[in-house]
């Protein structure tokens, strides 16, 4: 049983090559040079209903292209895709009514002159939502997203954070079963981003909606996604949980120790990363962590505190993007 199934996806397109300088620009009026861009080369995965999956990868990796194919906007060069039983690019109304695409770059794609309420009503008409269901869903969304004060305001006058909240309601008022979120927290302040993350998590849990999201903010992925797909230069290079990626990329953990005698030689236990006052950070291979901890506790009498931490996620991801898995 799967909600999204992607098999051997490939997408290539031609883009015009922009010429430099005035003469070349004139020449390009008549002769356009094109180059073939392989946006997605081989991507296969499947997602179960209700799963929240994060798509990560450096800029230009093919994440957005994949989302566009899944939402039916683009037709792939090769491969098979099934989302809730439909082939997306046939763009059947029955399919389009079950999905939502939410972009952080343009969270609310409705005419800016409308009020939020009018835009929502228009969605009701477009997506044929029965009145009773519309009222019920809208009531819930208004409560969860604190939309009450925004309903009568013009979209033009909303701040980015407000636009994102209204945009979520706008995209979810027809209760889609699959959500594609493209950089949903782009440009949001800390509070708005947190609200957004909490909301998406709750929404998925309560409605059983499947969520695929791309983001460059690890906080999004960390708090929402049990599973991540890493995509790089059009290839899928990792499918699993964040901890697994971390373990693979960074085979070390940090042991932070407070206390101990001043003259103690810490390097017996691991690489000393930092030593300051009575605190020491030691780098230890993952598999050795239990043994080293035991030794520390046994051999060093005056330990006041000891913690084991993962290396910071951002630095792991940075390493992944630069060097690959």
């Amino acid at each position: 049983m799967h909600s999204v199934m992607v098999d051997g996806l490939q997408m290539a397109y031609l883009v015009p090559v922009k010429a430099e300088g005035l003469r070349a620009a004139f020449r390009s009026l008549w002769h356009r040079a094109y180059k073939r861009v392989e946006a997605v080369r081989s991507v296969s995965f499947s997602v179960a209903p209700g799963e929240v999956v994060g798509f990560i990868g450096p800029n230009g990796a093919g994440k957005t292209t994949t989302l566009k194919i899944l939402s039916g906007v683009l037709h792939p060069t090769a491969g098979r895709v099934e989302v809730v039983g439909h082939t997306p690019w046939e763009r059947r109304p029955a399919y389009l009514r079950q999905i939502a695409m939410i972009r952080g770059s343009r969270p609310l794609a409705a005419p800016v002159e409308l009020t939020v309420q009018d835009a929502l009503r228009f969605q009701q008409l477009i997506y044929e939502v029965p009145e009773a269901q519309f009222r019920r869903t809208l009531g819930l969304l208004v409560e969860m997203l604190h939309l009450e004060p925004l309903l009568q305001r013009q979209i033009r006058a909303l701040s980015l954070g407000e636009k994102m909240r209204a945009g979520l309601a706008w995209s979810l008022v027809y209760q889609p079963r699959v959500l594609f979120l493209d950089e949903p927290t782009l440009g949001l302040d800390v509070t708005a981003a947190q609200l957004m993350r909490r909301f998406v998590g709750t929404y998925s849990r309560e409605t059983g909606a499947t969520v695929l999201l791309t983001s460059h903010y690890m906080a999004d992925v960390e708090s929402l996604c049990r599973r991540i797909l890493l995509i790089d230069k059009g290839h899928m290079t990792y499918d699993g949980d964040l901890a697994g990626l971390s373990a693979r990329m960074a085979p070390f953990k940090l042991l932070k120790v407070a206390g101990g005698d001043p003259g103690l030689d810490w390097s017996r236990f691991g690489d000393v990363v930092e030593q300051e006052g009575g605190r020491v950070s030691l780098r230890v291979r993952r598999e050795a962590v239990p043994a080293v901890t035991a030794r520390l506790l046994a051999e060093v009498a005056s330990i006041a505190d000891l913690t084991v931490t993962e290396p910071p996620l951002e630095s792991v991801i940075d390493q992944v993007y630069r060097e690959g898995v």
């Binding site: 566009k68 939402s71 039916g72 906007v73 763009r91 109304p93 029955a94 399919y95 389009l96 009514r97 999905i99 695409m101 343009r106 794609a109 477009i126 997506y127 044929e128």
Partner: peptide, 14 residues
């Protein structure tokens, strides 16, 4: 500019 994408996503003939 991507406005076409928004329309293609709607369940009404584009």
């Amino acid at each position: 500019g991507g406005r076409l994408d928004d329309t293609l996503l709607q369940p009404v003939p584009s």
